[in-house]
Amino acid sequence: MPEPVVVAENLTRLFGDFVAVDHVSFRINAGEVVGYLGPNGSGKTTTIRMLLGLLEPSDGRATVLGYDAFLQTEEVRARAGYMSQKFAIYDDLTVWENLSFYGGVYGVTERARIEATLARVALGGHEKTLTRSLSVGWRQRLALAIALVHQPKLLFLDEPTSGVDPSARRVFWDLIYDLAGEGVTIFVTTHYMDEAEYCERVGIMREGKLLAMDTPANLKAQTLPGPVWDVFAAPLQAGLETLSVTDGVLHTGLAGNHLRIITRPKMTVRRLRAALTAAGVEVAAVERGEPTLEDVFLSLAKGD
């Protein structure tokens, strides 16, 4: 059995009447990249804040790196790195000054360590650049460097790719993989369904509840009630309305320029085509689709 680095048991947090995190239990093993997927307000950040001892759980408990997350906060924070959604980077300081400032907070003062950390996030050579002139993607990498400067074995990343363009998002994920390759355990939240596919295991949060946590492949195999299909038809709206009342179609939605549907196992192309044609919808193509985590989220959400 691999050693668990994070253990959450019935972790719960109330704000007044509002249940932000509702009896969440999971384990993260050493060296894993675990994603925490959910919309804004689903309890992702509150979970991280409890794991870091920043918020007291209303119920349940968590151990992080073997320490009680709330009672032994100092030990946890000395060994874990945290990149928050809204990170304070000083705009009027250079890249180097920002990193050495935060390094100092953790007691890291060696030049070589700071240089190595900048190199690791591909910011080497930009030491003297003023932080305010960095693009969003580069700022995120500086924020990552700050979370890494004390060489943590466990890293909490809270929506690290929010607001950056697709290219910079991928560069950031490459860095996450490099770190995982060096043995760092990573817990990363995102609201991008496609990003969650990069994780070894994914937890799906909705309204404070952890609906499922598993590998992307297992989530798809276990939660989807049947095949998914891409339907190219015109007009789109009429196609959507028709399929949403077609027997055997469990979920209909838009995906890019076409329709995406989930059906019962025995659905056929012919039946789908027939239903659309009968309603006067012109069908260009009906193809079996590859299941995605968005399909998983949509079918899990359907249960309520």
Partner: peptide
């Protein structure tokens, strides 16, 4: 739709298309 759940994103886009 930034950061809203996929169900709401779907609903929102269907309204826009209508």
């Amino acid at each position: 739709t930034t950061g809203v759940d996929p169900v709401t994103r779907q609903d929102f886009w269907q309204l826009i298309i209508r």
